[in-house]
């Protein structure tokens, strides 16, 4: 079993490793680009890590999905902060263990390390989001 794409992505998927553009502060995640997608600056980056939580920027609750997914499946655009401060990364976040009715824009959510899916039996691990435990309804 050998799945090159997922091997390449492990630092981001499993350890939330990212890079910050020295020129404009944009966070490259989950990719490791040389070229900044925002300002175009090339090759000047500082290694950074993301926090295991984020803020909901918008969300939907998916009722119809391919067989691989449980429904309803809440999905959000999340701002995930850097451990060292600066700008957050803006990424998709899949939710789990959260009543869809309780999700709101602006809500803080925890990122939990989970088995996200399998590729031909090989488990791919990364983070899913949920309402913080103390705040569960």
């Amino acid at each position: 079993m050998y799945e090159p794409p997922f091997t390449r992505d492990r630092a981001a998927n499993e350890r939330l490793e990212a890079r910050e553009c020295d020129a404009c502060g944009w966070v490259s995640f989950p990719e490791y680009r040389e070229i900044c997608k925002r300002c175009g600056n090339v090759g000047e980056w500082t290694a950074t890590e993301l926090e295991e939580h984020g803020t909901v920027q918008s969300y939907v609750v998916q009722q119809r999905l391919p067989d691989e997914f449980e429904t309803p499946l809440p999905l959000a655009i999340m701002d995930v902060p850097q451990v060292s401060g600066g700008e957050p990364a803006r990424v998709y976040g899949l939710f789990t263990e959260t009543d869809p009715e309780t999700i709101e824009i602006g809500m803080e959510a925890e990122a939990d390390f989970r088995r996200v899916f399998d590729v031909d039996g090989l488990p791919i691990h990364s983070f899913k989001f949920k309402r913080p435990r103390g705040d569960r309804l």
Binding site: P5, P30, Y59, V60, L65, F69, L73, V91, Y92
Partner: peptide, 20 residues
């Protein structure tokens, strides 16, 4: 819906992309 894209669209259907 993409099945293999961690962080960048796993499970993102067209209605989800626009519904956001």
């Amino acid at each position: 819906a993409a099945l293999d894209q961690v962080w960048r669209g796993r499970g993102v259907t067209m209605p989800a992309f626009f519904g956001l």
